[in-house]
């Protein structure tokens, strides 16, 4: 018999919590973003675990879509970071925090 699903779920919850905590406490955009990936992975793990527990292929299909979304998000997110960052270099301004609040 294999390891019970509850264990996987527990692992997934802990992973999710670590990721969420990371987003909340870190301030490096890239690291925050990686923490979001951790959260998505936790969700994927939960999906696969449920898929096994329910003997249902649907869960795995969902993981597939989450992966696609994650890829698209990464492209756009990193694009934004790069775009902002390049302007900083152009403008040589080191400290605008135009948006506050």
């Amino acid at each position: 018999m294999t390891v019970p699903g509850a264990w996987y779920l527990g692992l997934s919850v802990v992973l999710f919590a670590i990721g969420a905590l990371g987003v909340l406490v870190r301030r490096n955009v890239l690291v925050m973003f990686m923490c979001v990936e951790l959260m998505l992975n936790a969700a994927n793990l939960a999906f696969v675990t449920f898929s096994r527990m329910l003997d249902d292929i649907g869960g795995q299909a969902l993981v597939f879509f989450v992966l696609v979304v994650a890829a698209a998000e990464v492209v756009v997110g990193l694009g934004i970071v790069v775009a902002i960052f390049r302007r900083r270099q152009d403008a040589t301004a080191d400290d605008f925090h135009v948006l506050k609040g």
Binding site: T2, V3, Y8, L11, E37, N41, N44, L45, V48, T49, S51, R52, Q60, V63, F64, L67, A70, A71
Partner: peptide, 18 residues
């Protein structure tokens, strides 16, 4: 863990894509 739970394809995608 994916492999362990019989989700071989996703495991591959996980490594390749992620």
């Amino acid at each position: 863990l994916f492999v362990e739970q019989r989700a071989e394809f996703l495991a591959a995608v996980q490594v390749i894509v992620y």
